[in-house]
């Protein structure tokens, strides 16, 4: 490094390489992304938001909700599980004995404890999940054995990972397609509060959302979420109480003769929150919807 020019060239090449790799290449690969199709369906994904929900994203951005909330579900892998849905001619006891007789199969040796545990204290309630494994062959072997004796079962694809299993925040991992219409994309980097990818499924009631935004502690006692009272208007009750007025507990209500109604920003924000759903299986993130079993 004897001259300014050689430093310049080294820096130019180094930064240029990473620019090509992490800016240009992803833009080319993902910039033209289009809607995908929901697995085993003709529906497109993702859906455009309504006007209110689109505006609500801007309220979410301006309020900095992403400083505490992520919109991103992680997944460590997928497991397949086999669930018994009908015993056919069998009684629970003799079915249990049959399952135990399978334990000598070399493919199942690793799973005997888990299967035995899944039948512990079982008296024939259905559906019952018998076996979960990352190895699809093991599961289909089990399903075939069950079919051979006339027991009805279903195999389901179940994504794994703490966000999905331990926290119950989603059905599958988030994928690039989920964010196609977000301007700006609000992934977030810190989970001071729960992930919101599926808040529209978890809390589909706009009134709950308003109440929570106005006074988080009124619905979640231990909440550390700050209130967003400035998205609401406190005004005297008119001749007819406003239908949208929040139904607040006495501790949180503004006082007699007053009501709390959401400002347009709060309406839009709630519409946006209700639009947050990543609950359909995609080719790149398959899962079996729970409703199929029940």
């Amino acid at each position: 490094m004897k001259t300014g020019i050689s430093i310049f060239i080294a820096a130019f090449v180094a930064l240029g390489a990473s620019w090509c790799g992490l800016v240009l290449a992803p833009s080319l690969q993902l910039g033209g992304a289009k809607e995908t199709v929901v697995l085993q369906s003709a529906d497109h994904w993702p859906q455009q938001r309504t006007g209110d929900a689109t505006l609500g994203l801007q309220v979410y951005r301006a309020s900095g909700c992403a400083a505490c909330h992520t919109e991103q579900i992680r997944q460590t892998g997928v497991a397949t599980e086999v669930t018994v849905t009908g015993l056919g001619a069998h009684q629970p006891d003799d079915f249990g004995a049959f399952v135990k007789s399978l334990f000598i199969l070399p493919t199942l040796v690793e799973y005997t404890n888990a299967i035995a545990a899944s039948l512990q204290g079982w008296h024939g309630e259905l559906p019952r999940t018998l076996l979960t494994s990352a190895n699809q062959q093991v599961v289909s072997e089990m399903a075939n054995r069950l079919k051979a004796i006339g027991v009805k079962s279903e195999t389901r694809i179940v994504p794994q990972g703490d966000d999905i299993i331990a926290r119950g925040w989603g059905y599958r991992q988030s994928v690039a397609a989920d964010y196609l219409y977000d301007q700006p994309v609000q992934l977030g980097g810190l989970r001071a509060g729960p992930d919101l990818s599926n808040i529209g499924v978890r809390m589909p009631d706009a009134n709950w959302q308003w109440q929570h935004l106005y006074a988080p502690k009124s619905v979640v006692k231990t909440s550390t979420m700050p209130s967003f009272k400035f998205l609401f208007e406190v005004r005297p009750v008119g001749h007819v109480p406003s239908p949208d007025a929040l139904k607040l507990a006495a501790d949180f209500a503004p006082g007699p003769g007053l009501e709390v109604v959401p400002k347009p920003e709060a309406r839009q924000l709630a519409a946006y929150l209700l639009s947050l759903k990543a609950n359909v299986p995609l080719y790149e993130a398959p899962f079996t919807p729970v409703t199929a079993v029940k």
Binding site: S18, W19, L22, V23, P26, S27, L30, G31, G32, A33, A176, A177, Y179, L180, Y181, D182, Q183, P184, V185, L187
Partner: peptide, 13 residues
């Protein structure tokens, strides 16, 4: 804006 997750990728870079 670029579409979807290209935005955070550029942001992380």
């Amino acid at each position: 804006l670029p579409r979807g997750v290209v935005q955070p990728v550029i942001g992380w870079w």
